[in-house]
Simulated scan of single mutants.
Amino acid sequence: MSAPAPERTTGGPQRSEYSLEIYDGLGRCAATFWEYVLIMRDYCIEKTDGNFSGNLFGYLTSEQTLGRKCDPKRFAQTESESVKSNSKWRKERLLPVPDSVDPSKQVLMLAHFKTSVKDGVAPRMYIHDDTTGTGKIYIGYIGKHLSNTMTS
């Protein structure tokens, strides 16, 4: 008998909803998401070293920055108006961060990286870029596509 998924006190999907193992047994999504982590690391280094002052999308589209990059089409800076205006869908994207980022210990994460569609799951990695505050990027969610007009 397996243990129940832990409860979360913040918004966002429950653990059982976002396991990708059943969709991606070979780990292709994990490899793609790891590449995105390395890209975000290089972006943070460029900002910390003073070589770049823009946002993550600007980094991905800049020819003057060093480091890893991906196709900018794989990154969305925000969500559609339909997602932003739907309270249930917004709540799914209210994800945990340290209180050094926000006293409520959660922020609305609309920026996300995309993988290719895998059996209709279309995995996503939701992030919060706090490079101008704590100097870090926070990953709030990795898993199947959250609710929107195409999934609901």
Rank of each mutant, 00 (worst) to 15 (best):
T9W: 14
G11I: 11
G11M: 13
G12E: 02
P13Y: 05
Q14W: 08
R15I: 07
S16M: 02
S16L: 06
E17K: 13
Y18P: 00
Y18N: 05
S19K: 04
S19L: 05
E21K: 12
E21Q: 12
I22M: 10
Y23M: 08
Y23Q: 07
D24P: 05
G25L: 08
G25W: 08
L26V: 00
L26A: 06
G27E: 12
G27H: 07
C29S: 13
C29D: 11
A30F: 02
A31C: 08
F33Q: 10
F33C: 09
W34I: 11
E35P: 04
L38T: 07
L38Q: 15
I39Y: 06
R41I: 08
R41A: 04
D42Q: 00
Y43T: 08
C44T: 08
E46S: 06
E46N: 04
K47I: 15
K47S: 11
G50I: 03
G50M: 01
G50S: 02
F52P: 04
S53G: 05
N55Y: 06
L56M: 09
L56F: 14
F57D: 04
F57G: 02
G58P: 02
L60P: 06
T61I: 02
T61Y: 00
S62E: 01
E63S: 06
E63C: 09
E63F: 08
L66R: 13
L66C: 09
